[in-house]
Every structure is written in C-alpha cells, then in structure tokens.
Amino acid sequence: MMWYTECGKDGDVVLSSRVRLARNLKGIPFPARADEKQQEEVLTRCKNAVLESGSTLADTVKYIDLSVMQDYEKQAIAERHLISPQMMDSRIKRGLLLSDDNRLSILLNEEDHIRIQAMAAGFDLDACFSLADRVDDLIEESVEYAFDEQIGYLTCCPTNAGTGMRASVMVHLPGLTISGTINQMIDSLSQLGVTVRGLFGEGSKATGYLYQISNQLTLGAAEEDILEKFKQIVESVIGKEREMRTRLYNTDKYKLEDRLMRSYGILSHAVLLSSEEAMKRLSDVRMGIELGIIKNIKLEQLNEVTYEILPANIMLKYNLPDANERDLKRAEIVRERMCS
C-alpha cells in the first residue's frame, strides 16, 4: 500500500501532508537558463549524491529519466503529486528520484535544480520535515548549494528564497464549501501568510471540496518556526471544518443525508463517469463516511480509488487513449469499489 492510500492523523479533514525544500547548485544557472550540458551536470551530480551515498536511503530510491517517458506517463505521476505539472515540459532535461513507497520524490531541474518533496498520509508535517531535512543534509555532503549569508538559500523564484521551504496539506472541506464560508476562510488565511489552491496546486481549481493549503513565508524565520505557525493555522482550519459539518448536519439532517446518499447511489450504478463528476461524487461519499452515514466503505478504499480513476492513470494502466472508453472504465472501477 502506498502512503497516499492510507488514512493518517486527522484523516477526516487532512488527506496528506507535504514539505518541499528548494535548492540550487552553486555556480550553475537555474534550469531555465542553463544549457543542455549544465542541465545534464545537475542530473548527474544530484543522482550520484543520493544513489552513491552508501546510505540506507540509496537502497530504497530509483532514478527516473523523464525525457524518455511519454506525456501520459508523466501526467500519471503528476496526478499522484510526485512531480509538478511543470516537470512535463521536455525542453529541459529533467529527472526524478523516487522512493519505493513514494513518500520521497526529488525533482531535478524543475524551476530549481532540486526540489525535495517528503509526503505523508494525514496531518504529519513533522515526519515530512524530518525526512526532507535528512535528505537535504545527505545531498549537501556531495554538492555545494547556492547560499547567501544574508538571504539564505538562493532560488529561481524570490518568494522561495530564505529557507526554501514550503509546507502544505491537502484538505477536504465540504462543510466550509457547502455552507458558503470557504471564501471568507481563504481571505483570512491569506492575511496570515497562507495560500489556498486547488487539488493540483498553483493555477488549479478546487475539485470535490479538495484544497491545498500552504505557507507563503520562507524568508526571515527558521524552518521549525515557520512549520509550527503553519501547523497551528491548519489545526484551526480542521476545527472550523468539523464544526461546520456538525452544524450542517444538525440544521437539516435529512437533506444532507439525501445529497450524500444520492452520490453514493450514482457511483454504485453509473455506466459512464467523467473524471470531474467522479471527484465530486466521491467527495460526497467521503463526507458520508466521515459523518458515519455511509458505513460499508473505508476511507482507505476511497483514497485508493480516487487516484486510480484519474485520466492519465487509467490510460497508463488500461491503455485507453479514448476519453469515452476511460469514462466507461472509470464507472466500472468505481462500481466495483462501492459494491465490494
């Protein structure tokens, strides 16, 4: 079982946690400005820093050359948040170091030379930071980072300078969304230096009540302090979401139950199912499970099917380039899960 199918701490609201560290090699231009030889140098040096380190980590990580992958293959791992959509651009030589359990992915030649991503199920930013920090130290034993005593780590985008750290959580917020209070919460978080985006990060829309919440501040404070402040903000969001779910249920129990059970019924019998509708209906079912209305499905099952039915993942697993065929297969997969 991969980490993203698990249900971790506070899993009724927080699906996953991630800590990302942005780093660049001293003396080499950022990927967009580097020539092909310099891009290759980054790949070789970073790959060797991990795979030839002699550490226990080296035994659990494999290197993936993105330049030899088809677009739909890259899209499939992007759907699982193992690479960013930007990594699909083949004009720059890019690579990925990925652990067997997918908890660690090291993006090479994305916007920065190195993006260390550590991920965990549920609300567990401390575990993510611990892993990312350990990998960061390991790589730095072999390469010298671009660093300034006053600014900190130098990054392609100035907003990442300083610690180069972004902490984020994927959250399920049906209560705040259905009640119409989500925009108010987003505005409040923005004033606290926190940004809210859709399922696939910057530029994406929220799908199925799923949002990414991440810190904006990376400069002028230590990683631990930034992380602690961010954790307190996320805990507040968790509390407000649970409170709003309870209020919605107590205000009009039968209307809410009807909505959630209708989605469950559609998923149990649909013949054609688009990706967008599937995500919305699965989100209703998730809320039903979290409220104890739907009892025969576990959140772990729902997490697994959510990733399995994404477009590129269906195309990769079942070799279905036609959208209509994918909608048929998606409905079949979901029916099986709902009735199992």
Rank of each mutant, 00 (worst) to 15 (best):
F200G: 01
T159I: 04
R330W: 05
R245E: 07
D136S: 15
E111L: 08
L316Q: 14
E140M: 09
V234G: 06
Y72S: 02
L15N: 00
G193R: 07
S90V: 11
V194P: 04
I333H: 02
R23A: 08
G201E: 05
L189P: 00
K37G: 07
M119L: 14
G265W: 01
K295V: 13
S268Y: 05
L282N: 05
R262Y: 04
T44Y: 03
R326S: 07
V171E: 00
E336T: 15
G208I: 09
D225W: 00
L96P: 07
G8Y: 02
I139F: 10
K255Q: 15
K255S: 15
L302I: 12
A121F: 06
Y249V: 03
M165W: 11
D100K: 13
V196M: 12
V171I: 13
Q150L: 13
A132Q: 01
R80V: 01
R94Q: 13
E243W: 02
D89V: 12
R326Q: 15
V271D: 09
V234T: 09
G27N: 14
G8A: 02
T155E: 01
I182A: 03
S283T: 11
G193K: 03
D124V: 04
T60H: 11
E336P: 03
K37P: 00
L66Y: 00
G122V: 11
L15R: 04
S188H: 09
I64Y: 01
G203W: 14
A118T: 10
T155H: 05
V285Y: 12
L328N: 08
N215K: 09
N324H: 08
A270E: 08
D284M: 08
E300H: 04
R94I: 03
Y318W: 14
T251I: 06
K255P: 00
D89P: 11
L199C: 13
I309P: 09
L154D: 00
P174D: 06
G201C: 13
R337E: 09
S99C: 11
P85R: 15
G208K: 04
I139S: 10
D137V: 06
I309N: 05
R18H: 09
A127V: 04
L273P: 06
K47E: 14
A323F: 05
D327W: 10
K231N: 09
R134T: 15
M287Q: 12
I151S: 04
L25R: 05
I333L: 15
S236V: 05
N319F: 11
S190P: 00
T56N: 14
E241F: 06
L328W: 06
P31K: 14
C46D: 02
A323E: 13
L272S: 08
S168F: 06
R262I: 05
N324P: 00
R134Q: 13
F123A: 01
